[in-house]
Design a protein around this nucleic acid. Sequence first.
DNA 1: GTTTTAAATGAAACATTGTTTCAATAAAAA
DNA 2: TTTTTATTGAAACAATGTTTCATTTAAAAC
Lengths: 139, 139
Amino acid sequence: MKPTDILQVHELKKTNSRLALIKALQESTFPQSENEMKSRMSDQYDRITFYRNVQALEDAGVIHRIVVDSHTVKYALNCCETEKKHQHIHKHVHFNCKSCGKTFCLENTDIQQYRLPAGFQTEECEVMIKGYCKFCSQK
Amino acid sequence: MKPTDILQVHELKKTNSRLALIKALQESTFPQSENEMKSRMSDQYDRITFYRNVQALEDAGVIHRIVVDSHTVKYALNCCETEKKHQHIHKHVHFNCKSCGKTFCLENTDIQQYRLPAGFQTEECEVMIKGYCKFCSQK
DNA sequence: GTTTTAAATGAAACATTGTTTCAATAAAAA
DNA sequence: TTTTTATTGAAACAATGTTTCATTTAAAAC
Ligand SMILES: [Mn+2]
Ligand SMILES: [Mn+2]
Ligand SMILES: [Zn+2]
Ligand SMILES: [Zn+2]
């Protein structure tokens, strides 16, 4: 799906920064940090606008934010950017490689249900696994 | 166990900052942010020393660090501060309340095993659940 | 196609979190 | 009590994220 169509579907204005941001993520095979996005967006990148747009795109359900650790956030497109606000948001596990630093959306590894103590109500659950990725574990 | 004994067992020097840090956590019933620690440590608090000591105490296995989100880290004592470097580290789930903001170590809710795609090797797994805590869900 | 309007942008200044270097200090060993 | 070595705290810095406000632009109205 073209960046302009994604924005259309989600009723967001088609601005150059947003188109560049989405394009940068579409051209990536794994989640990207702000710095990686900056390189990919070249002159279309402005820090303040970037922060505002990742917020807007996350709220709209176009992208998701992955907190790798307290100083590292990465961004990835949602699987079904197609459907407008269709909140079925495939909740998957994230993986971060201790060797190459790459982050992966393990789209087929679903988050498990946790039975919590009495009185605790789950709304969201984030699972961040750290270890060695398929490229680094072979060494 | 007294703060001074904890440091003894872990072969760490008994400095005032470290004693105050451990005492502050012992007097808390749930994980604390740096700002909360600052209040509890009063004049024994110095930002730079604090950061160095949480690092040292984490490395020694006295405390653990909980990344609630990209701008919030909290600290808690490990369950068995007693045993020297005894790395059985009860890996438990963490919970953050969207209403009161409190974080909880759900010591009895173990992290589940995830079967990952071929080639991915797990070393650590962090689970952060967000929702409403036992105090806030009753409203 | 031109005008209008509301949203998005980017500059500036700020806030928070965390780190590095280095001289002074304090804990523990001799 | 002296010596040794780790720890401390000041200063300066770096990275990440936010707020305010005048300017620009997308999209709607005409
Ligand atoms: Mn993902
Ligand atoms: Mn915990
Ligand atoms: Zn790797
Ligand atoms: Zn609560």
